[in-house]
Design a protein around this nucleic acid. Structure first.
Lengths: 190, 190
DNA sequence: CTCATTCTAGAATGATCATTTTACATTGGG
DNA sequence: CCCAATGTAAAATGATCATTCTAGAATGAG
């Protein structure tokens, strides 16, 4: 019945995702997205409904392929502070979170803000996934009444790093900031 | 010779600035800007050349009227850690840096990234002003070989706060994070 | 007062936008 | 092998975009 796509959905979503990361939603046209994905505009509309549908699909793909993947890579099941620290340090590796792409979660948060928008669902899910991963490690490793404080502190650090990378600022001091942040947390280990 | 503007330039730039803060550059049209400022599109083009000219002027206005003003208010001449801490805490006050506006510096950094753009000059100046203000206090009060580290740490915190506010996330734990950050710095006071 | 100058207003223009339509290609079931 | 279903392609459409044009209003110098 349902015949398979003639295009590879993961590849197309990856291309669209990176295009949106580079230019945002308002800053890119269907023609640009057509060039980026190799699909004609007709195929895009057939497959995703409209530009918003493609954005939603690309955002979902980003949460799975980038955020969840990163969390599984660095935290996985044996979650400890070292893994979380490595996750933060990995943000500073040249690719693929480099400045000319940017984090779609951060970019969407800034582009759309808190008002209801095409990004609302993705933002809610993305922040929930990220915060849950951080909280899981902090709660298990440190616990206590200050868990919320540590989680927010790390979330602030995470978003701050992505903004500075995106802006092309000098981030050579960031690894030292991350290390000192986690050193501080390790002092609280039971 | 040069006759005065019939409109109040500061008011118009303030309105345009807030419109850009809400919607970004790509996300707003000349018609929207015309509605926001009360100027017709003809007057906008006459006064500012084009949409990019108005954006540049609004960005410059933001740097002066918001960033420099905030720095002068909280740091001024008698710069100490308490003043800098108050500056950070002031970001969390409901108005005027509230989420539905956002910080034009952060928003522009995320929208345009590091590539040359209409925002490049404003971004360079805005980050320079902000970083210099932080560095001045840290250097004078604490000094030592870790100044860069402290400056970047505070810059990360600053940008992280603005992203979370913009995203409408729960920032109720942020004041405690700021206080603990500055408590840590005060331990380094000579 | 008057005129050259500068500003403003609003309609006009061509480009680009998202989207739809139309025609065609590809596919697997009968 | 053929056909109904679905995917793709590319041109067409109307809306909206940034920008310009044209006409008229406000201003200060002489």
């Amino acid at each position: 019945m349902t015949r398979p796509r003639l295009f590879d959905e993961a590849t197309v979503l990856g291309d669209a995702m990176n295009a949106f990361r580079r230019a945002g939603f308002a800053g890119i046209s269907i023609k640009d997205l057509s060039d980026a994905t190799g699909l004609t505009s007709g195929s895009i509309y057939n497959a995703f409904g409209d530009k918003e549908g493609l954005y939603r699909a690309a955002f979902g793909h980003y949460i799975d392929a980038v955020i969840r993947h990163r969390i599984e890579t660095y935290i996985g099941e044996a979650s400890d502070l070292d893994g979380l620290e490595q996750l933060f340090l990995s943000l500073l590796l040249p690719a693929p979170e480099s400045g000319d792409l940017g984090c779609l979660l951060t970019n969407a948060a800034v582009e759309f803000g808190a008002q209801p928008s095409v990004a609302s669902e993705g933002l809610a899910e993305g922040f929930a996934v990220l915060e849950a991963a951080i909280r899981q490690v902090v709660e298990r490793q440190i616990g206590g009444g200050q868990v919320d404080l540590h989680v927010v502190r790390l979330l602030l650090l995470y978003q701050g790093i992505l903004v500075l990378i995106r802006a092309g600022r000098d981030v050579s001091a960031c690894p030292a900031v991350i290390r000192s942040e986690f050193e501080q947390l390790r002092k609280l280990l039971p």
